[in-house]
Nucleic acid binder design. Structure first.
Lengths: 211, 211
DNA sequence: ATGAAACCTGAGTCAATATTCAGGTTGTAA
DNA sequence: TTACAACCTGAATATTGACTCAGGTTTCAT
């Protein structure tokens, strides 16, 4: 669901001026998330969105210029929601290694609770590639910063933080796909613990092992 | 490109009986890979495929039942090609840690050389989800086997091999997307070395670090 | 209360394209 | 050479669904 209080900053061209309009826009955004999430971009129909929202077909075009525009708005919204959700939880972690575990667990939970929006983000790769890249570039940049800061604090070994950031994001994304979208057959905490152990210590039997 | 020698086992309903037919089918498969890879599933047109192949529109339906069928055939073909390519290189590795580095490097190179087919695999998530899941389930199962075998050989620490497998696959996939599809701004060997170091030793300063 | 702005309606327009098919061409076995 | 199967052709069909628009309804500042 799109946060009920906010519709600003979604890149819309026509903001509603009245309460009724805000309500309608919100209903359309939620309906669009459900329609795109369930049927995918191309099988989703504007008429399906307006039916779910209990509005007439033409009403859609009161707020959106096109099918693609509302899709992009949802991708951007999801980016904001995800970053906020994870950041809120990660700040409490005492160090980077703990932050990795908390971050992955928070991500896995978030995806479970926002399957529709998350599917939309993944499909954005083929519908609005620039929005998709912006979504992950933003994550990667933040991740890289965090890694660099941890290195300078002596919490983790130095290394190629950009590569590491992308690698770690990929881990989370695939764990999310497997354990939050495809099947919820493992508790997020368990999956996160395994991943965090891998991230912290690697596969090697001892810390001196050579790659 | 689809391997020129093989068109069997792609799930086609109508195999060609003459040399001319085999040639035409091969041209259509290569053209389909290019068309889908460049324009994506839904923007790809059957007429685009036949034009690239230098054939008439109706010829497509001599060999394929539908747009989706040829797409699925390409996904399955890509799975076979990828597994073979990586397996050939990984068998030479002396141990699991070395295998990780070699495997990631091989994967990054393969994706660079098969961008079209690789985009098709990624898009399969939304066009033929069962084929996509089969593609990654197959990788995950093999990966898990390899990890378990390495554990019993004492090469790596024991752990949740299924989670680890998905995590490691996710790493490769995202590194491939970032460094082989989006931009080739880093040599595969370099990226693979960083990733392998992360996989082998983790982020921690010393091997005794707790997660 | 009131009227202008905002909002809503849904039948109709229009372009795109997956798929069909009737008929022509080519390959090959005998 | 012949005849049949395999193959190729591309105009025509049929569906789908994004988007428009002319006109009606609701809201709210004054």
């Amino acid at each position: 669901m799109v946060d009920a209080a906010e519709t600003a900053g979604l890149g819309l061209t026509k903001e509603p001026r009245t309460e009724r309009g805000k309500r309608t826009l919100r209903k359309l955004l939620d309906a669009a998330a459900a329609e795109f999430g369930e049927r995918g971009y191309h099988d989703a129909a504007i008429s399906g969105i307006t039916q779910r929202a209990g509005a007439a077909l033409g009403t859609f075009y009161t707020y959106f210029d096109s099918k693609e525009q509302v899709f992009r708005a949802l991708v951007e919204d999801m980016g904001r929601l995800t970053r906020r959700w994870i950041a809120e939880r990660v700040v409490q972690a005492p160090d980077r290694i703990a932050a990795e575990r908390v971050g992955i667990e928070a991500f896995l939970e978030f995806v479970r609770d926002h399957k529709d929006l998350y599917r939309i983000v993944m499909e954005a790769q083929f519908v609005a590639e620039d929005a998709y890249r912006a979504y992950y570039d933003s994550f990667a940049a933040a991740y890289r910063e965090n890694l660099a800061a941890s290195v300078s604090r002596g919490e983790i070994r130095p290394g190629d933080d950009e590569c590491r950031a992308w690698a770690l994001i990929g881990m989370s994304v695939f764990l999310g796909m497997r354990y939050s979208i495809w099947a919820e057959d493992r508790p997020p905490a368990e999956v996160a613990a395994t991943a965090a152990d891998l991230i912290a210590r690697g596969l090697s039997v001892d810390g001196a092992a050579r790659g």
